[in-house]
Amino acid sequence: MSKIKLAHYWGAGCGGCDVALLDIDEKILGVAEIADIVFWPIAVDGKVKDVEAMPDKSITCTLFNGAVRNSENEHMAKLLRQKSAIVVSFGSCACYGGIPGLGNLTNRKEILELVYTKLPTSDNVERVFPQAETHTKDGDLELPVLYDTVMTLDQVIDVDYYMPGCPPTTNLINEFLGIVTAHVKEGAPLPPKGAMIASQKTLCDECKRKKAVKKIDRIYMPHEIAIDPDKCMLEQGIICLGSSTRAGCGAKCLEGNQPCRGCMGPTAEVLDQGGSMLSALASVYRVEDNEALLSEDNIATLMAQVKDPMGTFYCYTLPKSIIKRKVKEKKQVKKEV
């Protein structure tokens, strides 16, 4: 039996996903048994031109992690799509934009401005910025173009499967490798295109904490109180995105007594993870007996206890949200001080 051809590439990511693949313990031997690694920049020496030379669809499966944030990411995504039979959007950044996706709260110009002129360590009075093309006497140099907007992998290429997580957990990777192995070895059917290699349910399904009545009287940051390890995080007033987040990770953060921040993204039924969780939280947040007498200002003050809704509810999913990125009003409103 011939081995399958596996590629693993990183876009705008942190490398954690690459490490996660290495982190599957002895199962990595199983991978080696069924697969030839044809391209994996972090682990195996290989050149882009080698990939370009491969016949179309000759790579059995590409695991693509990281978001698409510059021209190189996009080029590689498209190249690997052309060369691969199956492309898996691997990890939160590829699936939803992930942490790099928060870059959509700003833009290319602001980022370059900050990084090249405003950091304490910057010493750039000439205001030199990286250019896509630089002509030197030794020849022309090219750098990828940084985009204004971070995109998810499926906003750039057609994706076959999704495996969310920051990074995807060992069990999910194993599950997927098992499916591919069974497919290769025994001809077992692959999941339907577009399938999510994770649970259909929410994290509450995997979370072992005891639930009582969802009624929040005050919101706390995790460091502000001693967190009861057995009680539902949300019921303690700590914003936990578990109820709006897809299960599959094993609720590891909650086991570590930290709230879920939503890296697995929403369930299939939810369009916008942030909007959905925002609505849930607002719905159970302190409805008082004297509600009718509260003014709109009272309510605004009450809800202002939720600090930074964007960072809280869209930590991993901004590029995949309904609005996708920050916009710029022509007419700027003056903020009250």
């Binding site: 349910k201 009582a212 969802k214 539902c232 719905s283």
Partner: peptide
């Protein structure tokens, strides 16, 4: 039922 895990947000609402 395929999705619901009884998180309980709906109950007091």
């Amino acid at each position: 039922d395929d999705v619901c895990d009884g998180c309980g947000v709906c109950e007091p609402v």
